[in-house]
Design a protein around this nucleic acid. Structure first.
Lengths: 248, 248
DNA sequence: CGGCTGATTGATCCCGGTCAAATGAGGTGG
DNA sequence: CCACCTCATTTGACCGGGATCAATCAGCCG
């Protein structure tokens, strides 16, 4: 299934993502497209794009595949703090800091554009709407991270897992990766556990509950939201914090 | 105790905070000081500076007192997602988005500067180091939020509470509010519970454990870190994610 | 075929939640 | 000065959601 289809424009998801945050001018789109096509890289599943402590001097934009940001405690406990989906920027502006505070790993084989820091700054200087869109993305990342904090801190296991699915669903919709309420969901239950602060066993049982209640289907890395409204309600989900106008 | 002492420069904490992120030029400090003194506001304890959904068109910089950012679920469950300490900016750049995704409430009476959006942008345009410092602050906020996610997701109750104390301690050190390993800590156990994702009762017992182990003293809103090293170890705390050079 | 990774199931345990009541420190008004 | 109220902390008893441990099962690959 992965590697991803190569027909169509590789930069499409990034354009959609940024455009959902800030209306992009034609010029912005052209500049972006050009910058992305400069250097395309591929990486396999289960690799690290960056580790805690790494220094950063380029900006990466994910074009296809899934990544996750995570941190690890000394004794091995791991927390996935967010997913990086196609169109997302890995670390815009993080170069303002000296090094990575977290790691970024691949959940699937992935394709991304790598833009050296200098080129990225030129890009931002070249178009205001583009610069603002990237900043919006950064700010939305804080909002997302806050919601994850709430999710893990105050929601029950069932609500948590449901909420994670709702968020991913809305985000994938923005970049056009949902069809018939269905998408690929290449996340092992182990990963879901690390993302929700639960144990694998309990994630398994929670997913069964969601399936048995007729809210979702999930099998072989394919997720279908069967009853979006009910899922939203059980998750106590509201998409406001994602600040994205939905397409269509 | 609060209201805060008025001798000395009110803008001091903000200068220290930003300067710890990016070396500020003399010009930057002058500009900042001037912008802050333009409009100083005060607010009592237990008030909201902003609610979820509010639109934002000014930037607020906390000069003294404590605030917290929080989100509430429909049924009343509340999660404090971070504290705002003297010198911190409430919502730099958040005006890029349409509205607040979270609320900001006061834990104590507080004093803050309010800078209208336009003035703030002038300020940034006036000095590069200042603009970068504010952006750094925003980016560090993401890093902090990630660490909170890890804290709540993967640390035990004891580790969590200890970690929260460590973070606050280091942050207060940056702005010069620690003396003899002691600071005011105006957070009720109820608030601590909402910040750590625990229940009040369990926070109470956890604090007792930390006290009985000789790691901290905490009474009447005064916190003393008795054994910083041991506390750091039990918390699995590393200050790297705060990206602040410690003073001294 | 054997080895590996991921999903599933069952049994048991315990960390931390919940409920309820007591204690204590201000604060206020008579 | 005292009675009373409120809010925060503390304590005790009990409970339960989710963790842990341990198999088993199902694909997939070499």
């Amino acid at each position: 299934m992965h590697p991803p289809p190569f027909q169509g424009n590789l930069a499409q998801s990034a354009i959609r993502r940024l455009n959902a945050l800030r209306q992009l001018s034609d010029q912005a789109i052209a500049l972006l497209q050009q910058a992305i096509q400069q250097r395309i890289r591929r990486v396999g599943a289960g690799e690290d794009l960056a580790c805690e402590g790494d220094s950063i001097d380029s900006v990466r934009i994910l074009l296809s595949g899934w990544l996750c940001r995570y941190k690890t405690l000394e004794d091995g406990r791991r927390q996935i703090v967010n997913f990086v989906l196609p169109g997302d920027t890995c670390d815009a502006h993080v170069y303002l800091l000296s090094s990575m505070d977290h790691a970024i790993g691949t959940l699937t084989p992935a394709v991304y554009a790598e833009i050296p820091r200098g080129n990225f700054e030129e890009l931002l200087a070249g178009d205001r709407s583009l610069a603002e869109a990237f900043w919006c993305e950064t700010i939305v990342n804080i909002a997302m991270q806050r919601e994850w904090t709430v999710n893990i801190g105050r929601r029950t296991a069932l609500e948590r897992v449901a909420h994670m699915l709702c968020e991913v669903f809305v985000r994938l919709q923005t970049v056009g990766l949902i069809e018939d309420n269905t998408c690929t969901f290449p996340v092992t239950q182990m990963d879901m556990a690390d993302a929700t602060g639960l144990s694998v066993v309990h994630v398994n049982r929670t997913l069964q509950e969601l399936r048995n209640s007729g809210l979702i289907k999930l099998r072989d890395r394919v997720l279908t939201i069967v009853d979006a409204e009910a899922l939203t309600i059980t998750a106590l989900f509201s998409p406001d914090y994602l600040y994205t106008k939905r397409p269509g």
